[in-house]
Simulated scan of single mutants.
Amino acid sequence: MIPMSTEPDSAAEGIDWRSESSNVEMSRRDQLSELYEQKIRVPAVVAWSDDRTRLGILILSVYLFMALVDVLGLWRDPSPNQADRFLRPFENMQYPLGTTNSGVDLLALIIDSTPFILLMVLAGGVWATTLAVAVGTLSGYKGGTVDTVITTISDFFMAIPGLPLVIVLAIALSPENPILLGVVLTINYWAGLGRSIRSQVLSIREASYVEASRTMGTSTPRIIIKDVLPNIMPYVMVNFVLAARYTIFAAVGLYFIGVLPYSGQNWGVTLSNAYYQGGLFSMQALHWLLVPIIAIVGLAFGLILLSQGMDRIFNPRVRTRLTGESESVTEDTDASTTEMI
């Protein structure tokens, strides 16, 4: 009787290895495909399906384009030219938005101010929203002593009048850096937003899926990242836009009244100069006043339109309906039912 060999077939083993490697490769490819589908394509389709979001993206793209033009030096500097004083918009196409009383090109002035404004707005929105999310989420989820301490600190900052505090800090620090200025303008804006986020987290932490994660021994940071934060993201994004808009209006107002230093060109500085040079009472200088106002309102309007589309992006029901997943699921269900019959 010939004994059977117990050694594995090397060819078959090689095929198994290649098959296993192929399966691993395919699984990684599927993971990347799913990540692209959920995080990039589906949000983009949902965002682009909303007219308000499209218009908001278009408006903000104009401001980003102006900032890029200024950074690359593709437009002339706003320098006085006494030969072209008080030109009205489109009177001379060399100065499409007109000039000031000293012959400064208003379009060049707006373009020159845009990078400063965008950095300031981004810094203020990120500072206020990030701190509010961290404070509100930790306070609402942990509870107990942590909640008491954080809530007390938030109440203290909420009790301080925001505008006087900002004015005092602006006078004391005289911030010329746009990032520092954005932080100063929203120094206590986070407190009220943090309390609102805390109240939402208090209800979310009692949800069944959060309780299930705790039962399975999932760590607190993972529960917050995977279960809590996705449910408050629409609210957070809307308030990020509101904080950015607040930063714009606060900066322009403080520049207008002369609290912030007149360093370089700025929309608030332009507005103040136009007002004190008779832009409100003279038709000849009215465009000098209107141009910075339109720039301010346009940026705020673009941010508001974009924020209105954020709920559609983060709301899973809306995403499912707009991307056609509901219809495909219905068709699959109908087809399987027909086959069974």
Rank of each mutant, 00 (worst) to 15 (best):
M1S: 08
P3S: 06
S5K: 09
D16G: 00
W17N: 05
R18P: 00
E20H: 08
R28I: 11
R29M: 15
L32C: 01
S33M: 14
A47Y: 12
D50I: 00
F65Q: 01
V71R: 10
S79W: 15
S79M: 15
Q82M: 12
A83R: 07
R85W: 02
Q94P: 03
L97Y: 09
L106M: 09
L107H: 13
I110E: 07
I117S: 02
W127D: 04
A128F: 04
T130V: 10
T130G: 04
S139M: 07
T145V: 15
D147W: 11
D147G: 03
D155V: 05
F156D: 13
V166Q: 13
L169Y: 14
A170Q: 12
G182F: 08
L185E: 11
G192K: 13
G192Q: 08
R195E: 12
S199L: 08
S199H: 10
I204W: 06
G217V: 05
P221N: 10
I225F: 13
R245F: 02
I248T: 05
L254D: 06
L260E: 09
L260P: 06
G264R: 08
Q265N: 06
G268C: 03
N273Q: 13
A274G: 01
Y276W: 14
M283T: 13
P292R: 02
I294P: 05
I294G: 03
L299D: 05
A300Y: 09
R312A: 02
N315W: 11
P316H: 11
R319M: 04
T320M: 03
T338R: 15
I341S: 07
